[in-house]
Design a protein around this nucleic acid. Sequence first.
DNA 1: ATGTCTGGCGAAGCCAGA
Length: 284
Amino acid sequence: MALRIATWNVNSVRTRLDQVCAWLQAEAPDVLCLQETKVADDLFPHTAFEALGYRAVISGQKAYNGVAILSRQPIEDVRVGFAALLPDDPAAVELGEQKRVISAWIEGVRVLNLYVPNGSALTSQKYPYKLEWLACLRRYLEAQDAQGEPLAMVGDFNIALEARDIHDPERLSGGIMASDPERQALRDALGDRLEDVFRVFEPDAGHWSWWDYRTGAWDRDTGWRIDHIYLSEELLACATACVIHRDQRGNEQPSDHAPVTVRLAWPTDPAEDGDGEGDDAGGW
DNA sequence: ATGTCTGGCGAAGCCAGA
């Protein structure tokens, strides 16, 4: 039994629809989590994904933010926003105005899809919002932990946790997406329960998931690794690969982010004696 | 290295956000 989960900040799902569909056909992940869908729920392009065998659950808004979970496997128990687990937390309710959080139960895994606020600049009012959001994420994950579910938390975290996650750590450390307060806030949220699975397989620098449109970053390969997949202990033991699909950043009219995928595999139950349903297509 | 790309508004270029 194998489950492949992907995450991709697509910077408008309608603008990127053909690229996302082509990538789904090429890679055929079981689950694809999208961020920055930038579309109201009644305009989400469900039919294009259904034609490829994916059902989508969504939390979107006009123009900004927006998250979605696409799955070939049955989707159960969808939770939208922090307030789904923190109904009595005023901050959780207020932060729900921006659509950045959705989770679902898929094949025995709690898939949590996040679009962490960017923060803009250390001097911006958006920066304290980012810290407040991360503090709420900590409370949310404590409530999630109490559910006792295997957890795969994926998304655009807009934070590079370590020097090896930035192309020029000397210049960029301490600035937005690499400041101590936001790094500590994310580490506090992660606790000792969640592990960045990419680092299980790749210890070196030079692996990025985001290249700024503005600075010719793709041509210079001056990127950041800010799109992450965090696994709880029991899923970490099942992880067989974690890959950044950087080729997608080289598309015509690309998103500024590349997809990231994780493959989870566990022994097939002998009682089922199935053929694995051909889940190993794609080679990772 | 304030540059590039997106959507909104509204009908063409500006603005905000990243």
